[in-house]
Nucleic acid binder design. Structure first.
Length: 424
DNA sequence: TCTGGGGTCCTAGGACCC
DNA sequence: TCTGGGGTCCTAGGACCC
């Protein structure tokens, strides 16, 4: 059996842990630049606020229902996620961290009769030690566990835990819309419904060869998983990333090459840091810039360029030298830029980098420099040591008007509690 | 005024090899 | 009249996930 542990309304729950006044109040967490809704508390969902909705379109609801708004605070969410995952890893033999708020677990070594009790205990422990409420779904495959998890959140009677077994499987799947099945997106949902496959049960009973022919091997796998045949085993070891992307939409529009260059330089530095963190180097970098596609009144321009490094690298300065040149090549004067980004790919372990006989760079030296820079920045804070091209005045910085403190990762943001008034 | 960010996997088709 | 067979690798684009 597989289990999936999923944090309830994760970002909203993180905000509540250190601000209990928010309990039972509608909360919404916004994307970067306070743009779109990316998380909602149950109260906000009940009001009818949709996922992904632009904040400016719901301003009247925010006022009417006194909804509390938060800018994304990834320092906080990332740290809270780590705490939850550590507890799961400590309680279970095998865990696959699937996303910031979800983990699959292996339950095959536990007797079926005992699974629910064990999960009940795990839920209580996570809530007690982190303040984050979770729901747990259980099934013979990951796909079935995901469906169980969906039910455990919807049906209050489940108290956060649900298991699909041989006795209830058909009855349960008949009530699940096919679009809710893990791996079935909008396109596949429309395709299946066209052929009158409306529920998860219909999909389970349909022909897997037909599905493979008309969709892909993944379509066939979903059907088999619904039948209890494991196609997606637990991946417990963490894998190196195959591509790494850093991109942002700017708070204000940017026009000058200098400003655009400093933003691209910053994203390059981030990508290089992420590469070094997993001891990898990249053979390719792809940069892109674009204007704001929502502004019909302004002329639009977007362009991108791919760079092949002569030798795979994770050296910020080397990457910057190539990337700045590429940016000059695609930059056009007279446009209002709104977004830019850097993607590195062709990622290999640094120990396997193929040297170039004409290489003039002292790579051992640059390795030591990068190591020292990372070490200083880890201790003193991000970008304490930086490249000049990253700049100091960020015209393109994010808009984050409702940012909560980083309670658990910044000494200056520690909670202060007034014992006398019993207030935070 | 105003619309996020970061990933993975699969497939078809082209280029190339013997 | 008549033009093989069997592969690999790479890339762009699509679909999906959170």
């Amino acid at each position: 059996m597989f289990g999936i542990v999923d944090c309830n309304n994760f970002y909203a729950s993180c905000e509540r842990v250190f601000n209990p006044k928010l309990n039972n109040k509608p909360i919404v967490v916004l994307s970067n630049n306070d743009g779109c809704v990316i998380a909602r508390s149950n109260e906000a969902k009940e009001i009818g606020i949709k996922m992904g909705e632009p904040a400016f379109k719901i301003s009247f609801l925010i006022e009417k229902y006194d909804i509390k708004i938060f800018s994304t605070n990834f320092a906080l969410y990332g740290d809270m996620s780590k705490r939850v995952m550590n507890i799961i890893a400590d309680s279970m033999s095998k865990i696959e961290v699937y996303s910031i708020d979800e983990a699959f677990i292996d339950l095959s070594h536990i007797d079926i009769e005992n699974i629910k009790d064990k999960m009940k205990y795990l839920r209580i422990r996570i809530l007690q030690e982190t303040g984050i409420p979770v729901s747990i779904g259980i099934g013979k495959t990951k796909t079935l566990a995901k469906i169980s998890n969906h039910i455990s959140k919807k049906e209050l009677i489940c108290k956060g835990i649900f298991m699909i077994n041989n006795n209830n499987i058909d009855r349960v799947l008949k009530k699940i819309d096919v679009g809710k099945v893990w791996g079935v997106g909008l396109r596949t949902e429309a395709f299946l419904k066209y052929y009158s496959i409306k529920t998860a049960f219909d999909l389970k009973e349909s022909n897997h060869r037909w599905m493979k022919k008309n969709n892909s091997i993944n379509g066939e796998r979903i059907i088999k998983e619904l039948r209890g045949i494991i196609c997606y085993p637990l991946d417990s070891y963490s894998k190196d990333k195959k591509s790494i992307c850093t991109s942002r939409t700017f708070g204000d529009m940017v026009t000058s090459l200098d400003d655009l260059n400093s933003s691209i330089a910053m994203y390059t530095a981030r990508c290089a840091e992420k590469l070094r963190l997993q001891n990898s180097s990249a053979m390719l970098a792809h940069i892109f810039i674009s204007t704001n596609p929502f502004r019909n009144d302004l002329s639009q321009y977007r362009n991108s360029r791919t760079i092949n490094f002569p030798v795979a690298t994770n050296d910020t300065s080397e990457m910057l030298s190539y990337i700045s040149k590429a940016l000059k090549y695609i930059y056009k004067d007279g446009y209002y830029y709104k977004r830019a980004g850097v993607v590195v790919s062709g990622i290999i372990p640094s120990s396997q980098v193929q040297c170039n006989i004409f290489d003039s760079l002292d790579r051992l030296k640059s390795h030591h420099i990068m190591k020292t820079v990372d070490c200083i920045n880890n201790k003193m804070g991000r970008d304490f040591v930086r490249y000049a091209s990253q700049g100091y005045f960020r015209k393109w910085r994010l808009k984050q008007e409702s940012l909560s403190p980083s309670y658990t990762t910044n000494w200056n943001h520690l909670l202060k509690i007034n014992i006398n008034s019993r207030e935070i």
